[in-house]
Nucleic acid binder design. Structure first.
Lengths: 407, 407
DNA sequence: GGGACTTAGTTCGAGAGACGAACAAGACAG
DNA sequence: CTGTCTTGTTCGTCTCTCGAACTAAGTCCC
């Protein structure tokens, strides 16, 4: 049940009904492809005539294509429909502290080409480099196919509407216009988003239909050098009033505790990030100074800690168990606050899933209000890797399938 | 940007466009009443002809009515339109541990009659009593006006769709079908909701337009014997996957801390409820046993503590300041997790606003990630009182104005 | 006071699109 | 070849948007 904002609404025009039905039809094709016109008519509960005209439009636009005829027990053989993914390309860009990744992909998420380079921190220079690489990617790999846009994910606060980066501490950016800069350089539509939100977006929009359908509330947690989270509520990504929602990484775990890189004390991130785990293993108290030291001269990584724990190193095991306990503590806040259908956890730490699962579950169980909430599934991020880049793809692909906003 | 669920969608039919535009028009009248047809046409950017036909329909249904002519500097004088609220009644019911309240109100939230009785814990008996009182209220006060339905708010987990109460520990209810029971007894449409969510709903749907418009993300916190919260994200109330979302009262404030009535340790509620404040003032460590004792033989209430703090009692001041500090701590979690446009706080504690505001602000400021987030407004609940009953009214009134779901 | 001008509200015709019925195109059994 | 069944297209009808013409009711100016 949503309000109609009387100062900013979308009125229905002559073509609104058609737009709605066209999008529903497109989504049905996407979900049930290959599918015949007659089947679509049955699923939509409309006459086959309407399906004919709608499909004709979608065919003309290249949104769907006709496949082979299928064998049926009786009657005329139907011509099956599919959504067009191969000829519609997306350039996904993931800007991180150490490196920047570019992925050329089609609408279905199939990877065509992946490359990376050391991140340049000057925005203008970085955009120049990106534009050059985008052009090169399209020249060499996109044989005639159309590029629908560029999706960029950034570790920081982003205004999706205006295309500006408010604040990205890792990159040292403040109030940087990314979108218009890249639009000017490439002439392509550009979408930007925070990397945590983008991971959630990818989970919501890409991947198999069974996973997508039905789940309207979840939290996607990425544990790496920091702890990023993307929150989906009522089937929509939560961005918040000032574009800083979903920062569960910086909820306090207690009034005291280690000082976090963000300046506050006792943040979840300061207890559970890869750096925090490594610091714990090495016997240091976590602090911004320790974190910076670990980042620069990283003799030991989390991967090392996980390997050693597997090899029987008791101190490594203890450090990981402690990380699991704190993660569970943070997850219990999510469970009580949002009651998500599931919590998805990604990052290197999932390699130690057999170790951390138990303390996570125990902590949630201890603090959840109902039995059902206590059993909230916590699942390692489904495979395929590159969740951030998948999020960048979703940024471009999702609007083509999203429900129109009316009212 | 929301997904279309290919297994459960709303197709556009011939009448969909009209339904959408009718609702927009109704909302415009609600927001800007009194308003003329010509003004409506300008605001909707349609011809006056369409407004004429839509208004004719709404007049016939009794959703709006024509008022007086207005003076204008030039031209024909317009006939002003208003939404019909006086002839459309709602019975709002608030079931609480100690007493149950019934309010007869119109669609505009104007109170016509208020009564209460000691809560009966047997669901069947309570429904009988309620049905009797609803009938009596309508007989004596509703002179011919139509009752649009009954709204019930309950301190517990509720499934709004099925009308069931999953679990209401205060009432000792588990899996109680409230809606169908009351529908059978009264023949009226019945809506039920958790009381925290209902308070948020009232804030979202009732009250002056300036407050409503634009604010799509907020948290409504009620501090009484417990701490209840209603969360609104993207303009919709958050219910969660298992109907237990919005329980910020039971997020942990630290790994240790006082045991809460819910069974967990260190919940926000165990630090900041009225009972916790009183216990702190009296020098007790909070525990379920202490809470029950305070509930039964309450020699001192929060109101007393606030009065004494006002009178110069240093221990009372200290207890309230501490409560404020913990509240701020809890609010900082909301700010980082959801980045709401504002946090609304209700309950007796707001009488000590001059005391608790500073520690609340300080704690949020210390932990928020951005300056804007640090300045998230925390406002005492706007007057009018009876937020729960207003929520019950909103349960019935809101659907009449809600945007239709398409896609 | 009467015409010119303005604004509000209604009526009407054209065009877009949902919707249902009829029809053409395959496929198969007898 | 004929009857039956299913898919896909075409076409007329009905609903609804949308703009233009028209009526109603004011003010302003000469």
């Amino acid at each position: 049940m949503r309000t109609i904002n009387p100062r900013d609404f979308n009125r229905a025009t002559r073509s609104t009904s058609r737009q709605i039905n066209r999008l529903i039809l497109l989504n049905l094709v996407r979900e049930f492809q290959p599918i015949s016109r007659a089947d679509l008519a049955r699923r939509m509960a409309v006459g086959r005539g309407m399906v004919t005209t709608l499909v004709k439009e979608l065919l003309a636009e290249g949104a769907v294509y006709e496949g082979a005829l299928t064998d049926v027990p009786r009657g005329r053989r139907p011509k099956m429909l599919h959504v067009q993914t191969r000829d519609r390309l997306v350039v996904a860009i993931d800007i991180r502290f150490s490196r920047t990744y570019l992925l050329l992909s089609d609408f279905g998420g199939n990877q065509l080409a992946l490359e990376s380079f050391g991140t340049v921190f000057d925005p203008g220079q970085l955009l120049d480099e990106l534009a050059m690489r985008v052009r090169r990617l399209l020249r060499t790999h996109a044989a005639g196919a159309h590029c629908e846009g560029i999706g960029i994910v950034i570790p920081g606060m982003v205004d999706r509407r205006s295309g500006r980066v408010f604040n990205a501490p890792q990159l040292g950016w403040r109030d940087v216009q990314v979108r218009s800069g890249l639009v000017e350089r490439t002439g392509l539509p550009v979408h930007i988003e925070n990397s945590g939100a983008a991971c959630a977006l990818a989970h919501l929009w890409l991947g198999p239909g069974e996973r997508r359908s039905g789940i309207r509330d979840f939290v996607y947690v990425t544990v790496s050098d920091g702890v990023g989270t993307g929150v989906v509520v009522n089937g929509e990504v939560v961005r918040g009033h000032g574009h800083t929602a979903g920062e569960f990484g910086h909820i306090p775990i207690g009034p005291d505790g280690p000082r976090c890189l963000c300046g506050a004390q006792g943040c979840l991130e300061a207890h559970t990030s890869n750096l925090a785990t490594v610091a714990r293993y090495l016997g240091y108290d976590f602090s911004p100074a320790v974190a910076r030291e670990l980042l620069q001269q990283s003799s030991v990584t989390v991967d090392d800690v996980i390997r050693r724990a597997g090899g029987g190193d008791e101190r490594a095991r203890a450090a990981l168990l402690e990380t699991g306990r704190y993660l569970g503590f943070g997850f219990s806040v999510m469970v009580n606050a949002l009651n998500p259908a599931q919590i998805i956890i990604g990052g290197e730490i999932t390699a130690a899933w057999n170790l951390i699962e138990a303390p996570i579950r125990a902590e949630i169980g201890r603090r959840a209000l109902t039995r059902r909430a206590a059993e909230t599934p916590v699942v390692p991020a489904p495979g395929g890797g590159l969740p951030r880049l998948r999020g960048a793809i979703a940024l471009v692909a999702a609007p083509a399938f999203a429900a129109p906003q009316v009212g």
